[in-house]
Design a binder for these strands. Structure first.
Lengths: 220, 220
DNA sequence: AACTGATTGAAACGCGCGTTTGAAATGGGC
DNA sequence: GCCCATTTCAAACGCGCGTTTCAATCAGTT
């Protein structure tokens, strides 16, 4: 009866992982129930223990898989040689924002990662080493190119953290951000593309590589 | 027998609220148990229901009280007239960071607020209106003074959100930040005072009101 | 068709949770 | 000293959770 299903996968293990991703991301480990996950996956409650052992192991596996898929679908250095550093910066920021806030890809993957960042469990160390740290180092290297020897590593890291913070708040505290801003502005200025422009310009101006935000001259 | 207790309050209602604050902040609403809270408060399990009705009402009351205490102890405009805007900016950033990251005051108060920001419940709307929005508007007005008419309100709000994001990440994702930075640097450069200097300078430089981060000239 | 190991299913188990109970303890007013 | 409202306490209740059970079903082999 493989014509009966609409969009569900054949393999029950896959279906459970996918449903678990959504439920864990939405409600967190504690509040998510095995029964809800199994209902969403269309399998019996016993299936979780049959395939994964227990709820904790299912969670670990869900995080591991979500994290590996994220790593796989994010190329680390997509630029042809000779690309100007400021173009790389703009691209980097745009990509991260698109991944964090955009509507491509299932939302629950990054939401699950966010939960780990906000309140790390055992699964977090791998996530940082495989996914976050490489991106952080890429940003540092771009900033190093931009500063051209005028900034020490510690200062580069400070600037990098500033840039990440500016993106992070929209993902982590989006609801409250929405309460602080006019609704129309939220949709026009605080979405991936204009935000990427702003954060990039803000950084370049602070580094003396673009005109200050207060002037209307073209960028240096 | 008021000499008998060491640091515990007399009033059981107070003791429950205080214990609940710590436990809710540490583990979240779902994972926190009424039994743990009562054990920490040194009262019987029935006391929660006797004084507050149920767990949910206790949580609401805990958030409400933590939020009101925060509001009460944060003066909104502590500057004498004529204080330069850039000094106000440095003060504002320093104060927020000190409140978020510093070791004065019980940690659980801001941690509870953070939980509300990350995943708002009913208690969040009041928190935003009474506590966060006024601070946000104060920051906007400081930035307005600094920009001196060269920036429109929407741009001011973008810059304000950038500044808040730079502080917020340290509070919300401190664990992961610690994994990305050398341990000694975390303690020397990413603590309230040096961070406030950095974020202030970053903003002023971006606004063209201080020398770029890449130069070693004194600030303009 | 019969056997066999892997998978599914409905029902139940034990446990810890929030909550309730009803009696015991407490303490101020007469 | 007694009364009565308030507060405390140990014990229990009902429920939903993660987990287990074991019989039913399925799929591949002979």
């Amino acid at each position: 009866m493989r014509a009966g299903e609409t969009a569900a996968s054949e393999d029950p293990k896959e279906r459970i992982l996918s449903a678990a991703g959504e439920v864990f991301a939405e409600r967190g480990f504690e509040a998510a129930t095995v029964r809800d996950i199994c209902l969403a996956a269309g399998v019996n409650v016993a299936a979780v223990n049959y395939y994964f052992g227990d709820k904790q192991k299912l969670y670990n596996e869900t995080v591991r898989q979500a994290h590996q898929r994220l790593v796989a679908q994010v190329p680390l250095s997509p630029w042809p040689e000779g690309t100007p550093a400021r173009a790389k910066l703009r691209d980097f920021i745009g990509n991260v924002l698109e991944r964090m806030l955009g509507f491509g890809r299932p939302r629950w993957q990054t939401r699950l990662m966010l939960r780990e960042v906000l309140q790390p469990t055992d699964a977090c160390r791998d996530l940082v080493e495989d996914y976050i740290l490489p991106q952080f180092q890429l940003l540092i290297s771009i900033l190093g190119d931009l500063a051209d020897g005028h900034l020490e590593e510690p200062q580069l890291r400070q600037v990098a953290m500033s840039i990440i913070g500016q993106m992070f708040i929209y993902r982590a505290a989006g609801d409250v951000v929405g309460m602080l801003l006019p609704a129309d502005e939220m949709q026009s200025l605080h979405t991936p593309v204009p935000l990427a422009d702003h954060i990039t310009h803000y950084a370049l101006a602070a580094l003396g590589l673009a005109s200050p935000l207060t002037s209307s001259e073209p960028r240096a």
